[in-house]
Computed example of a mutant assay.
Amino acid sequence: MESPTASPNYGSWRCPDGRFTKNVLEPGSGVIKPKEGARCIICVEPLADPTRCVEPLADPTRCVEPLADPTRCVEPLADPTRCVEPLSDPTRCVEPLADPTRCVEPLADPTRCVEPLADPTRSAGYPTGIWVQIELGEGDAGLDRLVDQCLETMLPGEVCRVDGLLGVQFVLKLASFEDGKEAWELDVNGKMERAARDREMGGKAFRDGNLEGAEQRYARALRLLVCTPGEAEEERIALLSNLAACDLKKGRLREAEVRCTRVLDKEPKHLKALYRRGMARAGMSDWTGARADLENLLKLDPGNKEARREILKVREKQKNEQAQISRALGKMFL
């Protein structure tokens, strides 16, 4: 990744892929920046959203969601003496009022003014608000990847504000780091161990519904094994098949078909690849190809319930398509 050069007034830098802008608050020292595998001491501090009120309040009768009328804290009430004074912050009702009976009714949870809202910074696997040691590249959540990408541009001691896509904002501090081994420095066993760990963690991310994290793990593991000898072939095949599963989940049917074909070229009896290619072809209305894959799978694994269920659907759709074609051809000669 291209690295920013801090200006004398610290300045800002925009990532070439547009994922984030980094504003340097305190410059770091030295010239060496962390790389993948480095053990970094960091602190991630999500920035407060001024439109939300989720901090504990001393007065449980204060704070409501923004209302249609920004000059009033609640809608007009039957009692005209309650809560009609303009507030300094038109989006919140947190100013103490002279009359404790005014503003809003007490909330169910007296420690919070609203229920927790969806916050992209809360999806982080890296802990926030505390100093913690992480291994760069080991985060799977969306914010983790943003943190990793930013860390590769930072110097020890640097503090910066990160403005990401979709309004994500946080302060990132890098206290220090120790270099880890990069991929090219690993021997064959080291590469295979790291690839196996990435495949395992990718599987966990996939089961948790984190497709981006799973893809990142599988793709990195595959890159590690590109130049390894034949003993890593089985691992490469498994990774290609897993990437095809991610393609299917994301609706990338052609990519899934291509990856599965690469697997089947090397291992024609790979059950998962046969199933996934059959599903990809069915999704593209290639009923003949899908039927062939599922029938081959059932020859190898007659008890596969999913394949048996899907082949019934494929046969029915293929039958309907052929009937439509026959009707259309019949009309041509009337």
Rank of each mutant, 00 (worst) to 15 (best):
R309G: 00
G30S: 07
C43Y: 03
R277T: 01
E55C: 14
A175F: 15
L97P: 00
D140E: 09
N9D: 13
V159A: 02
L274I: 12
R207N: 02
V104Y: 11
R161T: 05
R252D: 14
T51I: 14
E85V: 10
D247L: 08
P60H: 05
A6L: 08
E235S: 09
E215F: 04
E36I: 04
A282G: 10
C103P: 02
L225V: 08
E231M: 04
Q133T: 06
N23E: 10
C73N: 02
R112D: 07
A290L: 09
L77E: 03
C53Q: 00
R19P: 01
G129C: 05
R277I: 03
K317E: 00
A328M: 07
S88M: 10
G139M: 09
K173E: 10
V31T: 14
L239S: 02
C160T: 04
Q322P: 06
F177W: 09
L253V: 02
G37L: 03
R291S: 03
V258N: 00
E235Y: 02
E257I: 02
D119S: 09
G190D: 11
P100E: 14
L165M: 14
L211I: 15
D286C: 15
G139E: 01
R14G: 14
E178V: 03
R122E: 10
D148K: 09
V54N: 12
Q216D: 10
S176M: 09
G167H: 05
A98W: 10
A58S: 13
L172R: 06
C93L: 01
R39C: 05
E135N: 11
N23I: 11
E95N: 03
V24H: 04
I41T: 07
G230C: 06
P302M: 09
K33T: 03
A141D: 09
A328W: 11
V31F: 11
A38V: 04
L57I: 05
L174E: 07
K299W: 04
P70M: 04
A124T: 08
M332R: 14
A58P: 05
P80F: 12
Y126D: 01
P90N: 09
I325G: 08
R254E: 12
E310A: 00
M279K: 10
K35I: 05
E231C: 02
A175H: 14
V162E: 07
A183S: 09
K35Q: 05
I32C: 13
N320Q: 08
A307Q: 11
T111M: 11
E316R: 12
R223T: 02
S241E: 09
P34R: 08
W287A: 01
P229N: 07
D89V: 04
E115N: 13
C160V: 04
K317M: 00
Q324P: 03
P50T: 06
K266C: 06
G142A: 15
K272S: 12
M154E: 02
V258F: 01
Q216M: 09
Q149C: 15
I311C: 07
